[in-house]
């Protein structure tokens, strides 16, 4: 049974563009994973085709069976997190082990630190 976790500093999930996002990831698995990485990405969700873009990836060297690693990203200036009726843009962190196990944490990036609500959209 594996146990993966992403913790941000002070458990913060709402950020402004350009801000630093720091924290720690940890995992406990049956065997040492061949690779482990943390991805900062955004994707769309809604009625149409899904778009996704990985902005930055941190690879953790020589991951152990039970491990804990700090991470730090400088968040980009755009795009902002938003939601309308037709489409949402969602930022997230995803911890991925070579075994295929994943853990995800949704975050918000916008000038107000809150997801922008599109009117009628």
């Amino acid at each position: 049974m594996s146990d993966l976790e992403i913790r941000t500093r002070d458990d913060k999930t709402n950020y402004v563009p350009g801000e630093e996002l720091a924290g720690e990831v940890s995992w406990r698995t049956d065997a040492a994973p061949r690779d482990a990485e943390l991805r900062l990405f955004w994707h769309t969700a809604g009625k149409g085709t899904q778009d996704v873009e990985v902005i930055e990836t941190i690879s953790f060297d020589s991951p152990a069976r039970s491990d804990r690693r700090p991470f730090r990203f400088t968040l980009p200036e755009s795009p902002y997190s938003f939601s309308g009726k037709l489409v949402s843009l969602i930022w997230a962190l995803e911890l991925v082990l070579a075994s295929g196990e994943t853990e995800r944490l949704d975050i918000v990036i916008s000038p107000t630190r809150n997801e922008i609500a599109l009117q009628g959209g």
């Binding site: 969700a45 809604g46 009625k47 149409g48 085709t49 899904q50 939601s83 309308g84 009726k85 037709l86 489409v87 949402s88 969602i90 609500a117």
Partner: peptide, 11 residues
């Protein structure tokens, strides 16, 4: 209803 919460979203 936000798109991200719509149960019929594409993903």
């Amino acid at each position: 209803m936000k798109a991200r919460n719509n149960p019929f979203r594409t993903d």
